[in-house]
């Protein structure tokens, strides 16, 4: 007799009255131990649900049902633009990580360490020019694809009812893409970068009320310096990638759940 309260889910007692082999006992004990702590049953249930969903037959899509394929196929490239921007993002991420091995964000040196490392990548590093070129082109293509993707969504009315939230996430993503481009543009620390940075500081300063605070936060001061470059670098390689990747995952996840809006 134990003083511990027994409820209907007394798994130990249940195990005792079953005639279990040692392997079964060990398995069940482990499973129960883990389940108590990690709620494995919930995840098992999710998996089970997925299993049944995968094995269901796909319902006919709108185009199949009404035999609109002959009307639809020539729109198809426009429907791949979102996918294109994702691929460009992935290519930019990989080439950017490789570029990060050789780049250092410092304004000291002659003319500056950042500028020198770009020169090194472009002239001395084997395939370095290709790496930087790949990074830059995929960034350009990503921005272009994102813009066109937005136009496609607008002109096919795909932002309408159940998809408003995804449209807003898309607006945030297109803004983040441009901030990505801007921060990346500043990193070589050449003339264009410097004066684009100057414009950025002035834009930040002209935000009503919070302007000086914003300029301090983003640019590390009212004139461009080492801390500006450092902040742009951290935004470009650390902060934005996390935020943008998470948002892209949510964006695509919602598309996956809702399906692609077709022209009706």
């Amino acid at each position: 007799m134990s003083l511990e309260r027994k409820d209907e889910f007394d798994h130990e007692g249940w195990m005792k009255e079953r005639d279990l082999t040692p392997i079964e006992t060990i398995y069940l004990t482990t499973l129960m131990w883990l389940d108590k702590r990690l709620r494995i049953v919930d995840y098992l249930e999710l998996l089970e649900d997925l299993y049944y969903k995968i094995n269901m037959q796909m319902p006919k899509s709108h185009t199949e049902q009404y035999n609109l394929d002959n009307k639809f196929w020539y729109w198809y490239p426009l429907y791949a633009l979102g996918s294109f921007s994702t691929i460009a993002y992935v290519v930019a991420a990989i080439s950017g990580a490789l570029l990060g091995f050789y780049y250092s964000p410092a304004t000291t040196g002659d003319p500056s360490t950042a500028y020198n490392s770009i020169t090194f990548i472009m002239t001395d590093l084997r395939f370095g020019f290709f790496l930087r070129s790949l990074h830059r082109w995929s960034a350009q293509v990503m921005v272009a694809a994102v813009f066109l993707h937005m136009l496609r969504v607008y002109f096919t009315g795909a932002y309408k009812e159940p998809r408003e939230l995804n449209w807003i996430i898309g607006i945030v993503l297109i803004s983040l893409t441009m901030v990505f481009g801007y921060t990346g543009y500043l990193l070589p620390w050449d003339q264009l970068a410097f004066w684009a940075g100057q414009i950025g500081v002035e834009m930040a300063l002209s935000v009503p009320l919070a302007g000086e605070w914003v300029a301090q936060l983003l640019f590390g001061g009212f004139t461009l310096s080492q801390s500006t470059l450092q902040r742009m670098y951290i935004l470009h390689v650390f902060f934005l990638p996390f935020v943008a990747t998470a948002l892209i995952a949510i964006h695509i996840g919602i598309v996956w759940m809702q399906g692609i809006a077709e022209p009706h």
Binding site: A88, V91, T107, P111, S112, Y115, I118, T119, M122, F129, F130, R132, S133, L134, R136, W137, S138, Q140, V141, V143, A144, F147, M178, G181, Y182, Y185, P188, W189, D190, Q191, L192, A193, F194, W195, A196, Q198, I199, T223, L224
Partner: peptide, 30 residues
Amino acid sequence: IIFLAAALPPHIGAPANPSQTPAVILPDWY
């Protein structure tokens, strides 16, 4: 993308010089 990257690498401008404002200041096209 690979074709573009190989054929048209980006060029490097003059290094940053706070004392000399360039004639044309532009952000990227987008």
